[in-house]
Structure formats: C-alpha cells, structure tokens
Simulated scan of single mutants.
Amino acid sequence: MKITRRRALGLLAGLTAAIGLPSAWINRMKTYDGPVSDHFDGLRFFDPDGVPPKSLAQVFSWQFGSGRQRASWPESAPSPHADTPPARIDGGKVRLSFVGHVTWLIQTAGLNILVDPVWSMRASPVSWAGPKRRNDPGIAFEALPRIDVVLVSHGHYDHLDLATLSNLAAKFSPRVITPLGNDVTMRDADRAIKAEAFDWHDRIDLGGGIAVTLVPTRHWSARGLFDRNKALWASFVLETPAGKLYIVCDSGYGEGRHFRRVAQAHGPLQLAILPIGAYEPRWFMRDQHMNPADAVKALADCGAERALAHHHGTFQLTDEAIDAPVIALGEALDEAKVPRERFAVLMPGQVVEI
C-alpha cells in the first residue's frame, strides 16, 4: 500500500490521539518546570508502579505489521438520546449526563462540572485528519448550563481539547482543574482558559461542599515532539453529597495497585466511572488502556457500589470493533458473577441520577 504524505499525516494524527505519539509538525511547546518528586525526575513524570510508553519502533510494528487486524467502524453510529440538562441540581442528588467518549456533565449541590470535555469533530491536533466522531455529543454545546468547573485528566487529544476549552472559557469562564503541566499547554493556546494545576494527592475545594482529589493512575501523556511525559496525568475522586465518585479517564490495569490504594485512601466509593475501550492489540495497549475484563477487576479492587463505562464507541483509536467493548463487558461481568446492572453502559445523551 502506498503511503502518501497526507495519509501519513492523518495516521500520525490518529496515533497522537490514541497513544500520544509525538506529532512531527508541532513545534516545541512550553512544558512543566518544578521540583523533583517521587514521580518527577526534574524533566519528566513517571509512574513508579507503571511502565514507560511504547517505543516508536513498536508503534510502527503495530501500525504496519503484517498480522494487524483492524475492525471497520461504521461512518456514523448515532445515539437515539439527547439531553437538555437543568440549570442546576440542588440538594443531595447527583445527576450524571454522558456526553460521549470520556466527557460527562456532573451536576450536584448547585455546581455544574464537566469532565474531559471534547465537542470537536476529531480527537486530533488537526481538523482534517485523525479519529473522527461517530456520534454527536449527548448534549449540544448550546444546551449546556453554566459550567463552573472543568476537570481535565491529561494531555492526550481525546481528553484535552483546546478548541472546546477555549469555547468554554469564552462562554462561562470556568475553573479548570488539571494535573501539573497541562495548564502550560492550555494557557499557551488561550490565556483566557483559567487553568489551575495540581499534583497527585492534592485536594481542591470546589465550593458548595464539593471537593476533588487528584489520584495516581497508570498512564502517561504527550502532545508534541518534545513533551513526552512532561505533563502529569491523573484520575479524580469527587466528593459529593451522595458519596464519592471515582473518575478514571484513562488507565491500564497492571496489578491493580492504584485501584486498591484509592479504596484504602478514599473509600467507601459510591460510583466508579471506568474506561472499557481502546484496548486492542493487547500487546501494545495493555499498559495504558484497560480492556473490559480489566475494568471488572478494577471495580472489585476499588470497591465502588456501582460503575459506569466510558471511553468507547465515539472515536476509533485502536483496533477492536465499535461494539466489542460492550459485548466483552457483559461477558466479563457474567464470568465474575457480577450483576450486569452494577456496571452500566450508557449511550451519549443518557442520564443517571444518584
């Protein structure tokens, strides 16, 4: 197969979204500068319980290896649901609306919180190539209530969407809570983005009795050619009147240590939001993305009362079929003798209240 320049750039855009492959056409970016710690060596962040990201040689082995089996996704997979959220939710209830991929609107105690907001058509550094949305956001951007807080887990393009963050800043000017270094990326793109950067285990008061703690997760980060692991990544524990929500936007499973530590430090957990997609081929993806069987083990490890699935069905980042994660999750739950209703799968636009 002939690889044209346009095809090559499109491929790199897709890889950047899926695994943070540095993009050769992006110039050097400003990066985090801070003191050495047990997960920062003065130049790059690392997970003491994790593994380094895959090498460029391994990337090309995956992409161009003769045995690759990449499932074909439909051009469009629309959800029959669409949500028009209320202006606010007061009292002790929590309303969670699934926007798609890893984007959620969480409403509780008078606060409106977005998680990893991506309204762009592509999870990519360019608008003309890279993974394309297969379904519309479950909430139209124009239908959003006033947003008070945004949580951004890390810098990969399917999580940190600068166009969406700029639009949110222009319309609502929310606080943006993110791990160390991602604030540099945001402010370098748009000074109006009110980014606040924090380290693992930092607890931030959001007001109204709501707080969020950044917790370690098994992943990594990159956006440009020179910034691999120069910004931190994290999961979130959100304290709400209905209990604690554990929000895992991207994570490998490893030996499950991170999930058990969250249970020990922050339990009991009312709800875990866990990724189930972007996991094939396993030899390449297992260290950064859980498969559904891993997610079921993670639910057991963290001890949450129930779970919601995400990170599937919107952007084709890896090789599995569009419906494979949901099918495999059901099988894994049955194998573990966990009731399927304990680990629910929503479509964009569907809502859960606790």
Results as ranks from 00 to 15, higher is better:
residue 67 G to H: 07
residue 68 R to L: 14
residue 70 R to K: 12
residue 70 R to N: 03
residue 71 A to Q: 11
residue 72 S to T: 15
residue 73 W to S: 00
residue 74 P to F: 11
residue 74 P to H: 08
residue 76 S to P: 03
residue 76 S to G: 08
residue 76 S to R: 15
residue 76 S to C: 15
residue 77 A to M: 15
residue 77 A to S: 14
residue 77 A to E: 13
residue 77 A to W: 15
residue 80 P to M: 02
residue 82 A to Q: 12
residue 82 A to H: 14
residue 83 D to N: 15
residue 83 D to E: 13
residue 85 P to S: 12
residue 85 P to V: 13
residue 86 P to C: 02
residue 87 A to G: 00
residue 87 A to I: 04
residue 87 A to L: 03
residue 91 G to D: 08
residue 93 K to F: 12
residue 94 V to N: 11
residue 94 V to T: 15
residue 95 R to D: 07
residue 95 R to S: 13
residue 97 S to H: 13
residue 100 G to W: 12
residue 101 H to F: 15
residue 101 H to W: 15
residue 102 V to L: 05
residue 104 W to F: 13
residue 105 L to Y: 04
residue 105 L to P: 02
residue 106 I to N: 02
residue 107 Q to N: 05
residue 107 Q to Y: 10
residue 108 T to K: 03
residue 108 T to E: 09
residue 109 A to M: 09
residue 110 G to F: 08
residue 111 L to M: 06
residue 112 N to Q: 05
residue 112 N to T: 00
residue 113 I to N: 01
residue 113 I to Y: 00
residue 115 V to R: 00
residue 116 D to L: 00
residue 117 P to Y: 03
residue 120 S to N: 05
residue 120 S to Y: 07
residue 124 S to M: 07
residue 125 P to W: 04
residue 125 P to D: 02
residue 126 V to C: 01
residue 126 V to P: 07
residue 127 S to A: 11
residue 127 S to H: 08
residue 128 W to S: 15
residue 128 W to L: 10
residue 131 P to N: 14
residue 131 P to T: 10
residue 132 K to S: 06
residue 133 R to S: 00
residue 133 R to W: 05
residue 133 R to D: 09
residue 134 R to L: 10
residue 135 N to G: 02
residue 135 N to D: 05
residue 136 D to F: 02
residue 136 D to C: 02
residue 136 D to I: 02
residue 136 D to N: 06
residue 138 G to Y: 08
residue 138 G to D: 09
residue 138 G to H: 07
residue 138 G to A: 11
residue 140 A to I: 00
residue 142 E to I: 07
residue 142 E to V: 14
residue 144 L to W: 11
residue 144 L to F: 13
residue 145 P to G: 11
residue 145 P to Q: 11
residue 146 R to D: 10
residue 146 R to I: 02
residue 146 R to Q: 03
residue 147 I to A: 11
residue 148 D to S: 09
residue 151 L to K: 01
residue 152 V to R: 00
residue 152 V to M: 05
residue 153 S to G: 09
residue 153 S to Q: 06
residue 154 H to R: 05
residue 156 H to K: 04
residue 156 H to T: 06
residue 157 Y to S: 05
residue 157 Y to G: 01
residue 158 D to Q: 04
residue 159 H to E: 08
residue 162 L to V: 14
residue 162 L to D: 01
residue 164 T to I: 10
residue 164 T to W: 06
residue 164 T to L: 08
residue 165 L to S: 01
residue 167 N to R: 15
residue 167 N to Y: 06
residue 168 L to W: 04
residue 169 A to M: 09
residue 171 K to T: 11
residue 171 K to S: 12
residue 171 K to W: 10
residue 174 P to R: 06
residue 174 P to W: 13
residue 174 P to L: 10
residue 175 R to A: 14
residue 176 V to H: 02
residue 176 V to T: 08
residue 177 I to H: 02
residue 177 I to Q: 05
residue 178 T to K: 01
residue 179 P to Q: 03
residue 180 L to C: 14
residue 180 L to H: 15
residue 180 L to K: 13
residue 180 L to D: 10
residue 180 L to E: 15
residue 181 G to K: 06
residue 181 G to S: 11
residue 182 N to K: 06
residue 182 N to G: 14
residue 182 N to V: 00
residue 185 T to I: 13
residue 185 T to V: 13
residue 185 T to Y: 11
residue 185 T to A: 07
residue 186 M to V: 10
residue 187 R to T: 12
residue 188 D to H: 02
residue 188 D to M: 10
residue 189 A to R: 04
residue 189 A to D: 03
residue 190 D to Y: 02
residue 190 D to G: 11
residue 191 R to Y: 02
residue 191 R to S: 10
residue 192 A to Q: 13
residue 193 I to A: 09
residue 194 K to A: 14
residue 194 K to R: 15
